[in-house]
């Protein structure tokens, strides 16, 4: 009663329109719809992916909290309404397509790492992300070593020397070190239909 037919939200996005906006073919968008349905119904079958469902699909647990999955979720949720609709899911995944240009991947990575969303990647943010990584892994690094890593990174990336990395510096930096964008490509997205015929 009075609902906006939440399940219909799945169908509001025209696959042909999404194909024109992304690196996916219509048949691949249809295949990804199967994955979307699975994710969006894993906790509550409401046709949208909640943060809990996003984490469950990614990490196999909805209880783990992760700074990184939180940021990924926020970036996929372009309407910022707390859920990921099908169109947002497809447009977000498209950045991770092997065919997406490096500049687009770099822009996404910049926004991912700009955790305070101030338009720069600042030293404290990078330190926070390193600490987040250490807390989720068995790696142990002393504070002194972390500071050395930060010094070296900012020496290389912060060409203007103002203590923060702006979008232009970031594009230059990853242009010199494209391996930093390795996790911005999901190899599975190439030839989805042949790799995942069950989708």
């Amino acid at each position: 009663m009075g609902c906006c037919c939440s399940k219909e939200r799945l169908h509001l996005q025209d696959p042909a329109l999404l194909a024109s906006q992304t690196y996916f073919k219509i048949s691949e968008i249809e295949a990804l719809h199967v994955l979307f349905k699975k994710l969006s119904s894993s906790v509550v079958d409401d046709g949208v992916i909640s943060k809990e469902e996003f984490q469950l699909g990614l990490l196999g647990s909805s209880k783990k909290r992760s700074l990184f999955t939180d940021r990924l979720f926020q970036l996929f949720d372009s309407k910022r309404d707390g859920v990921i609709e099908f169109g947002e899911f497809i447009r977000g995944l498209s950045v991770f397509h092997p065919a997406a240009p490096q500049a687009q991947k770099a822009d996404f990575a910049f926004r991912l790492y700009d955790i305070c969303q101030r338009g720069f990647i600042e030293r404290e943010e990078v330190k926070e992300m390193i600490c987040a990584l250490l807390s989720e892994s068995d790696l142990v690094l002393s504070n002194d070593i972390i500071e050395v890593v930060l010094d070296k990174t900012f020496e290389e990336a912060d060409s203007k020397g103002d203590g923060k990395i702006d979008p232009e510096e970031w594009q230059e930096f990853v242009g010199r070190k494209p391996s930093l964008l390795r996790n911005m490509t999901i190899p599975y997205l190439k030839d989805l239909n042949t790799q995942f015929p069950s989708f």
Partner: peptide
Amino acid sequence: NSGSSPAIINAFQLIGMSSCLDLSGFFEK
């Protein structure tokens, strides 16, 4: 681990090691 090594890992290489950033997880059951 050797403090005097000139090949210090880059902070973003380190961060990129996070499995929480690997969206392949969606495709790996």
